[in-house]
Design a binder for these strands. Structure first.
Length: 580
RNA sequence: GGUCCCGUAGAUCAGUUUGGAGUGAUCGCCACCCUGUCAAGGUGGAGGCCGCGGGUUCAAAUCCCGUCGGGACCGCCA
C-alpha cells in the first residue's frame, strides 16, 4: 500500500516515485493551484505539495503518490528531519475522512488529561505517546533478552486464582459454575513462581500483569506490569546480579549509557540518612544526626529522643517567610510537633551564626555545633526536627524531598539496592509482629538469636529482603524465600496464623514444600515505573496505552459500569442498594 | 478515611482577591481570497447552563454550603 515512511525520506531519495500513507498533520493553502500538506505517520512528518482544489483536512487519512524532489532554494526547513525534500504529489486518495480532532494535535498545548484519555486513540498519534509506547516495547524486549541470556525460562501463570487474604485488596471475579464462590486476580505471581521452583524450573521469569485494588497514584495503577523472576540455588547477591544486568541493559538500550553503579545501602542507614526506604540519591541534603548536641539542652523543643537537621543551601535568601510557614504546616501535617528553622548569617566575629526562627532558644555552643554538623554557611537555611526517631526520619525525609528533589529526567539515573529490611515492621495491638514483606521471607542468618528470643527482640531481626530503588522510586522488591516448613511454621506461629489457617490460605505451597523444595530467591520490578523514569515522565499513565484515572475509571470505555440483571442472576449476585 | 489544587467556547487560558451594564483573548472550526508556505497570511462568521444543585443578595462566573469530575499527596499498596 505504501513504499516509504513519511519521516524517512531524505535528499538521497530525490527522483524516486514514492507512495506514502498517513494523517494530515497540517495544511497550508495558497489558492486553487497550490497547497502544502504535512503528512504524518509514526516516523515523522513530510511536506507534500498538492494542488489547492483537494479538500484535505486535519487528520484525514490519505495515501499519496508522487516524486521526491529537493525543495526550491530558500525553502528548506531545518527544523524538520525531512526538511530538505518534499513530494510533488500527482495522486491523492482519501482513505478516511475525519472530524476535527477533539484537541490540538500540536505538541505544545497541554491538554486536560481526561480529554486525552477519552480520545486516547487520537492522543496516541502524538510523538510523545509514540515515543513512550515504543520505548516501553524496547524495555520489554530488552528484559526478555537479558533474562533468557541468563538462563531464565518464561512461564505463564494463571489470572484466575484463589484469593489469599494477606496483602493488598484483591480484585475478585465471581464464579458462574459455583455461584457464591469467587476467583481473585493475582496481586503478583508470587506463590506460583515459588511452585515453579519446586517444579524444577530453576530460573523462572515472566513479564506479568499484577492487579491490586488499592488507591491509585502517579506511580500506581490498578493493573501494572512487573518483571517477575525467581531462581533456585542462588543467594541474594546472585539475584542482585541478574536484575542489575537486566536493568542496565534496559538503560543502555533506551539512553545509550550503561549504568555501572548499583550500590547497596542497608535499610537502617537509608532511614537515618534519607528518612525513607527509597532514597533519591541524585542529591545530597542528607539528614544529619544532632541528638548528642542537644543532650542536656535547656531548650524544651529539643528535649527529645532524636534531633536531626538538614541544610538548604542558599535557603535564607531563596525561601520567603510565607514559604517557610507553609513548610512548617507541611511538617505538622506529616506528624511532627513542629519544624524548627533558622537562617545562617555572618556574625560580628565574621563566623557563621544562626538567627531568626528558634535561634534564640539555642546556646552559643549548641548553635555553633549545629552549624558545624550541618556544614552550614551564611545564606543557608537549616531545619531541625526533634521527636521520636521514626518521626524525625519521616518528617525530615519528606522535607528533604520537598526542598531538594530534582525534576524527573534531571540528575541522571541513580540506582541503589536497599538491603537488610527488617523482618517485621512493628508489633500490632495484639502484640503479634507485623510482617514487613510477605510471610515467606527468610530471616537474616545473623539474627536468628533475636528471632528465637521473640518479643521486642523480633523488631531487631533483619530479613533477606531487598528493594531496587531508582531516583527515589521503588522499582521493585524481592527476597530469599523460606523453603523449609519448620521455619515457615515458626513464622506463621509468630504472626498468629494457626496451622489450620495457614493450611487454608497457603496449604498448596506448604504441601509443595514437603515434596522437595530447593532454596530459592527472587525479585520483581515495575516496568511502568522503569519506563516512565527512562523517558522522563513523572506519571506512569504516560507510558500506558489505556490507563485509568485516579478514581479508577476509564473515560474511554466508561468502565466500571453496572451489569444487567441477567448477568447478575447467572452469577448468583445481588447488588445492595447504595447507602445514602 | 483525610489534606490541598483545578473545573469559563472544540482546545488553552484571562476575568473570581474587592459581586454590578454585554464573559473576553489566542488557537481551532466554517465560508471566501491567496502559486512557496512550514505554528502560512488576509477578510468575514458561527460557537458559552461560567461542571451541577441549593443558599446569601436589588444583583452571583465571582461570596457561602453541598455535590460531581479531574489532579497531587497522606493513609493504604504483605
Amino acid at each position: 500500500m505504501r513504499t516509504d515512511m513519511c519521516g524517512q525520506l531524505t535528499s538521497a531519495d530525490i527522483g524516486r516515485t514514492v507512495t506514502i500513507c498517513g494523517w494530515v498533520d497540517r495544511r497550508r493553502e495558497h489558492g486553487e493551484h497550490l497547497a502544502f500538506i504535512d503528512l504524518r505517520d509514526h516516523t515523522g512528518v513530510l511536506q507534500c505539495v498538492v494542488d489547492g482544489s483537494r479538500d484535505l483536512r486535519s487528520e484525514y487519512v490519505v495515501r499519496m503518490t508522487g516524486e521526491v524532489r529537493s525543495r526550491p532554494e530558500g525553502t528548506v526547513n531545518p527544523d524538520l528531519a525531512t526538511g530538505d525534500v518534499e513530494v510533488d504529489v500527482n495522486s491523492v486518495e482519501i482513505l478516511s475522512q475525519a472530524e476535527p480532532p477533539p484537541f490540538p494535535m500540536d505538541e505544545r498545548t497541554g491538554v486536560d488529561e481526561t480529554i486525552r484519555l477519552r480520545h486516547r486513540y487520537v492522543d496516541l498519534r502524538k510523538s510523545r505517546m509514540q515515543r513512550n509506547l515504543r520505548t516501553r516495547a524496547v524495555v520489554n524486549s530488552t528484559i526478555r533478552a537479558a533474562m533468557e541470556r541468563q538462563g531464565f525460562v518464561e512461564v505463564e501463570t494463571p489470572m484466575l486464582i484463589a484469593s489469599t487474604p494477606e496483602g493488598a485488596r484483591d480484585f475478585v471475579v465471581p464464579s458462574r459454575k459455583e455461584p457464591g464462590s469467587f476467583y481473585a486476580l493475582p496481586q503478583s505471581p508470587q506463590l506460583f513462581k515459588q511452585l515453579c521452583m519446586v517444579g524444577g524450573i530453576d530460573r523462572y521469569y515472566q513479564i506479568a500483569r499484577c492487579l491490586r485494588d488499592e488507591d491509585l497514584r502517579a506511580d500506581r495503577q490498578f493493573e501494572f506490569m512487573q518483571l517477575d523472576a525467581e531462581a533456585s540455588f542462588v543467594s541474594q547477591e546472585d539475584v542482585f546480579e541478574f536484575i542489575s544486568e537486566a536493568v542496565a541493559d534496559v538503560a543502555e538500550a533506551v539512553t545509550g549509557d550503561r549504568p555501572t553503579e548499583f550500590p547497596h545501602i542497608t535499610w537502617a542507614e537509608s532511614m537515618e540518612r534519607f528518612g525513607n526506604d527509597k532514597p533519591d540519591m541524585r542529591f545530597g541534603m542528607e539528614l544529619t544526626e544532632l541528638t548528642p548536641i542537644f543532650e542536656g539542652t535547656e531548650a524544651r523543643v529539643f528535649q527529645a529522643e532524636c534531633v536531626k537537621g538538614i541544610c538548604l543551601e542558599g535557603g535564607a535568601e531563596s525561601l520567603s517567610r510565607n514559604q517557610v510557614d507553609s513548610l512548617v504546616d507541611d511538617a505538622k501535617r506529616w506528624g511532627a510537633k513542629g519544624l524548627a528553622w533558622m537562617r545562617v548569617a555572618t556574625g560580628d566575629d565574621g563566623r557563621a551564626r544562626l538567627e531568626a526562627g528558634v535561634a534564640k532558644f539555642l546556646s552559643a555552643d549548641e548553635g555553633s555545633a549545629v552549624i558545624a554538623a550541618l556544614d552550614a554557611r551564611p545564606g543557608d537555611m537549616v531545619f531541625l526536627v526533634a521527636d521520636a526517631r521514626r518521626m524525625v526520619q519521616r518528617v525530615l525525609g519528606m522535607l528533604r524531598l520537598a526542598l531538594g528533589r530534582p525534576a524527573v529526567g534531571e540528575g541522571g539515573f541513580k540506582f541503589v539496592w536497599v538491603v537488610d529490611f527488617p523482618l517485621f515492621e512493628g508489633l500490632g495491638d495484639d502484640g503479634k509482629p507485623i510482617p514487613a514483606h510477605h510471610p515467606f521471607t527468610m530471616p537474616h542468618p545473623d539474627d536468628m538469636a533475636n528471632f528465637d528470643a521473640g518479643g521486642e527482640a523480633l523488631l531487631d531481626v533483619r530479613s533477606q529482603a531487598y528493594d531496587l530503588v531508582l531516583n527515589g522510586w521503588e522499582l521493585g522488591s524481592g527476597s530469599v524465600r523460606i523453603h523449609r516448613n519448620d521455619i515457615q511454621s515458626r513464622i506463621f506461629d509468630l504472626l498468629g496464623i494457626s496451622e489450620e489457617e495457614a493450611q487454608a490460605k497457603f496449604g498448596f505451597l506448604l504441601d509443595a514444600f514437603r515434596f522437595g523444595a530447593p532454596p530459592h530467591a527472587g525479585f520483581a520490578f515495575g516496568i511502568d515505573r522503569l519506563t516512565a523514569l527512562m523517558v522522563g515522565e513523572e506519571n506512569i499513565r504516560e507510558v500506558i496505552a489505556f490507563p485509568k484515572t485516579q478514581s479508577g475509571a476509564d473515560p474511554l470505555t466508561n468502565a466500571p459500569g453496572p451489569l444487567d440483571s441477567a448477568q447478575l442472576e447467572e452469577l448468583g449476585l445481588r447488588v445492595l442498594p447504595q447507602a445514602t
